[in-house]
């Protein structure tokens, strides 16, 4: 009886998941094996061509040649997501630790402040960085006002600006889970560590970090996965000089008029995300078994 309810009681969830997640993903996969339409769109026909196209291209002289350009784009996307995740991890630990050590009321206020940016549209938040980093922007004005310099070149349109935007956008997703695990951290353990003559560094490495680790891992996935699909920051702050997977997919569905290829790249992107999630799930599973 109860087991039955467990299944049909979740029916609304199954229906929503099916219609809004499973079926659309199925369609994307199906399109990635379809034939492209001449002016966008696609025709049903089984073809592996889009996947071949990821690795090989017809060269300027009309022969099929190995072409690593899409691999570069995939590698660049992974690299950017990884760097963003690492910076977020490094920044969020002290922030979360600090918040967790505050009195209850202050803590609540600080957590609220961390979530506040989510109430503002992503585009608006990225545009704010245009005003901070741009010509005559907040940073330049501040530097000029202090008399340090008479003016600087624009700080926009480089990898640094893009990275700042990415870290800024996704940092709250890291702080919240890290905060959740740091908050539960028992102060007595830190005292015990000091009693056993551990210095601050050893305490951090041997006590705090291991206890915060589950939060850092959860945050890493929350940050890494959306970073793989980032489109806004690379174009608006980075200057769009190099394609990432998100822009590449957009190009193929839009001006490129090659939906099957766009779908194939989306499937590859999805595959990468699944590998990350499964690796994590397997490791967790292993740990539980051991324990």
């Amino acid at each position: 009886m109860r087991a039955d309810f467990r299944i049909w009681g979740l029916l609304p969830a199954w229906v929503i998941m099916g219609f809004t997640l499973i079926i659309p993903i199925g369609i994307v996969i199906a399109v990635s094996f379809a034939a492209r339409g001449a002016y966008g769109g696609f025709d049903w026909a089984l073809s592996g061509e889009p996947y071949v196209q990821i690795l090989y291209q017809v060269g300027w002289t009309d022969e099929l040649e190995f072409n690593p350009q899409y691999l570069y784009i995939i590698a660049r996307t992974l690299w950017l997501a990884a760097i963003t995740t690492l910076i977020c991890m490094a920044v969020s630990l002290p922030v979360a630790y600090y918040i967790a050590r505050q009195p209850r009321a202050v803590k609540a206020a600080l957590v609220y402040l961390v979530t506040l940016p989510f109430w503002v549209s992503m585009i608006v938040r990225v545009y704010a960085w245009l005003m901070i980093l741009g010509n005559d922007g907040v940073i330049e004005k501040a530097l000029v006002a202090t008399g340090l310099t008479s003016g600087i070149d624009s700080l926009l349109f480089n990898d640094g600006a893009m990275l700042v935007g990415m870290v800024y956008s996704y940092l709250p997703l890291m702080i919240l889970p890290v905060f959740a695990s740091v908050e539960k951290l028992d102060g007595a353990l830190i005292e015990a560590s000091h009693d056993l003559y551990a210095n601050r560094w050893v305490t951090l490495r041997r006590v705090i970090l291991p206890l915060a680790w589950p939060g850092l891992m959860a945050g890493a996935i929350l940050v890494f996965v959306p970073c793989l699909g980032a489109v806004l920051e690379p174009i608006l702050l980075g200057g769009g000089k190099q394609l990432l997977m998100g822009n590449l997919i957009q190009t193929q569905f839009g001006g490129g008029r090659n939906w099957p290829f766009g779908a194939a790249i989306a499937v590859v992107l999805m595959g990468l995300v699944m590998i990350v999630l499964m690796a994590r799930a397997l490791r967790d599973g292993g740990r539980h078994d051991a324990a």
Partner: peptide, 18 residues
């Protein structure tokens, strides 16, 4: 020589001298 490939916010970029 290119600073950016972007279609958004052109007014400010060229008007403001970015």
């Amino acid at each position: 020589s290119v600073a950016a490939y972007t279609s958004d916010n052109i007014e400010n970029r060229i008007g403001g001298g970015e």
